[in-house]
Amino acid sequence: MLTRKQHELLLYIDSRLSESGVSPSFEEMKEALDLKSKSGVHRLISALEERGFIRRLPNRARALEVLKVPEARTAAAPSNVTQMPPRAANDVMDIPLHGRIAAGTPIEALQGTDTLPVPAALLGPGEHYALEVAGDSMVEEGILDGDYALIRKTDTARDGEIVVALINDEEATLKTYRREGQMIRLDPANRMYDPQRYREDQIVIQGKLAGLLRRY
């Protein structure tokens, strides 16, 4: 069952594709649905993907396919009309860019107001933000100084996941999460650095790594 906004967005995309064969931009979708930000559009797109109405094409950057329209609209179509194949729509979404995060020694967590344009196909379900990596302690995981870490918001983590951990409510770091008895161990991916150990009440998980964006 789709929410009203999900239903409106799907019909709007389908209508635009029928008219021109080109998907509306995230800005156009935001304005059409009277949303406050593009992140709201992204959440609706993710929900539609989870419900099987659209999907991201895995091998085509920034591409979406409309797989079906709501049942009420489908039922209204004559049974002898051949349905058109799914159409691809390219788009980029802007996600919040929250400053720099240490991949070495923890640094103060910055909350910036900038945004970073990211191919929508790189992002899965959920709400995301980006952090610029500072340091070299995660190089053995392929995370380099100057990369943009794409983070999916979550407050939980499992052993072995790379997370953004907020330490003592003031510093953030990007590390591999491990539980060690009653302690939390944050592991670097560089033999030059030692693991960091904290009490559970010192750590707040603010997200986990969903992808990387590198500029050359």
Rank of each mutant, 00 (worst) to 15 (best):
G124R: 08
P119C: 05
L123K: 12
D147P: 07
E141F: 06
Y129N: 08
A121Y: 09
E132H: 06
A130D: 05
V118G: 08
A109N: 10
D145G: 03
G146R: 05
I143Q: 00
V133H: 01
V118L: 08
D145N: 06
Y148I: 00
D114S: 14
L150W: 05
G135S: 03
L110N: 15
V133R: 05
E108D: 10
P125I: 07
A130H: 08
E132I: 01
A121F: 05
I143M: 02
P125S: 15
H128A: 11
Y148Q: 07
D136P: 03
P125D: 12
P117L: 05
L144Y: 04
H128T: 05
V139C: 03
T115Q: 07
G135W: 00
T113E: 13
G142V: 01
T115F: 11
P117I: 09
D147R: 04
P117M: 10
G126W: 06
A149R: 06
L150A: 04
Y129F: 13
L150Q: 08
M138W: 01
Y148K: 03
A121V: 09
A130W: 02
E127S: 15
E140M: 02
L144P: 06
E108M: 15
E132Y: 03
P106Y: 07
L144C: 03
E108N: 11
T115E: 11
T113C: 09
G112Y: 12
Q111D: 11
I143T: 03
G104C: 04
